[in-house]
C-alpha cells in the first residue's frame, strides 16, 4: 500500500490537486482509497466516491486536533484501504495549529500552498512545510511569473530540501510529476512513526482550565515578557 498524506491551509486547492492525481493513478490501474480528516465539515469523500467510484471515508476530529486524530486512525485506515483492494491510500487533512505535521515515515508528504498567499506564508506554516517531501504551489495563473518565482524562493529559503512543484489544479497542469512521485515511493511498512516531534502536550488549557493569566496554570507556561518556562503546581 502506498501512502500519501496531503496537508495545507484551507482553500489552497488540496482537493483539486488530489482529484487530478486520483484520475491519473486510476488510468495507470492504481486505485486509491481516500480519507478526509477535518474538524467539523467536509464533503470531499462524497464527491470523490461519486466521481471515481472509489472507497472513501471522512473523520471529524471534533475536540481532537486533526493531526492528533490522524495518528489515531491511520493504522485502521491502511487496513481498510487494503481490504478494499486499493493500491494507494490518500489522506487529506487540515493541519491547523502549525506546530506539528501529519506526515509519517513511510508515506509521501505533500503540502499544498497557493501562490496568491502572502510572501511570508512559507515562514509561518512551520513543520507542515519543512517536513513535507513536496510543496505543491497552486493558483499559479493568478500571479505574475515574477511573483511565482519569488514565492518559490521564499519556500526554498525555509525548506531547502523540499521539492517544489507548481501546478494549475484547475486544468491539471503539472500533476504528472506528483503521480510519478507516488508511484516511485516505497510501500508503507507496518510500524509507522510520525515524522516530526509533536508539540509540548502538557497544557492546562487543553484539559479545560479556562482562567486567563499564567498564574492560574501550571506545567509549561509563559508570560508576556518571558520565554517558555516550567511551573510546578
Amino acid at each position: 500500500m502506498k501512502l500519501l498524506i496531503c496537508a495545507g491551509p484551507a482553500t489552497t486547492g488540496k482537493t483539486a490537486v488530489l482529484r487530478h492525481m486520483i484520475r491519473k493513478l486510476l488510468a495507470k490501474n492504481l486505485r486509491s482509497a481516500f480519507l478526509k480528516i477535518d474538524v467539523q465539515y467536509a464533503e470531499e469523500d462524497e464527491i470523490f466516491a461519486r466521481e471515481f467510484g472509489i472507497p472513501t471515508k471522512k473523520v471529524y476530529s471534533g475536540e481532537l486536533c486533526p493531526d492528533h486524530c490522524n495518528v489515531m486512525v491511520l493504522g485502521d485506515a491502511l487496513r481498510w484501504a487494503d481490504a478494499e483492494g486499493c493500491q494507494v491510500l490518500m489522506v487529506e487533512t487540515a493541519g491547523l495549529c502549525l506546530r506539528c505535521s501529519p506526515y509519517v515515515d513511510g508515506g509521501l508528504g505533500i503540502v499544498v500552498l497557493e501562490a496568491t498567499s502572502g510572501m511570508n506564508l512559507p515562514l509561518k506554516v512551520g513543520p507542515m512545510l519543512s517536513l513535507a517531501d513536496i510543496a505543491v504551489v497552486t493558483k499559479i495563473d493568478r500571479v505574475s511569473q515574477a511573483e511565482r518565482e519569488v514565492f518559490r524562493s521564499r519556500i526554498q529559503d525555509v525548506a531547502p530540501q523540499v521539492r517544489i512543484r507548481e501546478v494549475n489544479a484547475l486544468y491539471g497542469i503539472g500533476i504528472d510529476p506528483l503521480v510519478a512521485s507516488v508511484e516511485a515511493f516505497p510501500d508503507a511498512g507496518e510500524n509507522l512513526l510520525l515524522r516530526g516531534n509533536p508539540p509540548v502536550g502538557t497544557c492546562t488549557i487543553c484539559v479545560g482550565k479556562k482562567e486567563i493569566g499564567w498564574q492560574a496554570h501550571f506545567g509549561v507556561v509563559r508570560a508576556l515578557e518571558n520565554q517558555v518556562f516550567y511551573r510546578g503546581e
Binding site: T116, M119, N120, V143, S144, Q145, E147, V150, F151
Partner: peptide, 11 residues
Amino acid sequence: LITQHTTFLSD
C-alpha cells in the same frame, strides 16, 4: 512572461 496582471499580491 509579462502577464496581464494589473495588481501584485506580494506583500
